[in-house]
């Protein structure tokens, strides 16, 4: 039994995430196996990953930029998948070049790296990027702890 999960109030981000993620896992397990069994584990992995991201973002809500970006990405994933895959070859080149020029932060190369990592960070200024990163790190920590506890519970 996990004591840190038990001692939580139901409105905290951790408990919200756990609830929604477990529901999503149940739903994923209710799905039928896909036609090609070779891709089954990959599809399951993708669904679990998306479920984890989406439940985390939905637990946070739309207050934060990164959660909004994650939800938007997941929501529009299928609609824009073809577009993104078509654009993905030119995407890296065209988007890098203007980024290199602007920004006079200290170590703005690493700031751009951080912008790419944090979801929705491309359009942020440096100050709010740091705030979003702090919150994102906290939520990722929570996510990792909860997922690890779930995996430990089910693997035994």
């Amino acid at each position: 039994m996990n004591p840190q999960n038990l001692s939580l109030n139901p409105t905290s981000i951790r408990s919200k995430f756990t609830k929604t993620f477990l529901r999503a896992l149940t739903r994923i397990n209710n799905r039928r196996p896909p036609i090609s069994p070779s891709r089954e584990i990959y599809q399951r992995y993708r669904r679990v990953k998306i479920a984890a991201d989406a439940s985390m973002a939905s637990a946070v809500g739309s207050r934060r930029t990164w959660s909004r970006a994650i939800l938007w990405k997941i929501r529009n994933q299928r609609r824009y998948r073809a577009l993104v895959s078509r654009r993905i070859s030119t995407h890296a080149m065209t988007k890098r070049d203007p980024r290199e020029n602007y920004g006079r932060e200290v170590g703005h190369g690493s700031a751009d790296e951080l912008r790419r990592i944090v979801p929705g960070g491309e359009a942020m200024d440096f100050c709010s990027l740091l705030g979003e990163t702090a919150h994102y790190i906290k939520c990722l920590n929570t996510q990792v702890q909860v997922m690890r506890s779930i995996a430990d519970l089910y693997s035994t």
Partner: peptide, 10 residues
């Protein structure tokens, strides 16, 4: 972890 969960779940 999601990979682990995906592998565990079946």
């Amino acid at each position: 972890l999601s990979m682990k969960l995906a592998a565990l779940n079946p």
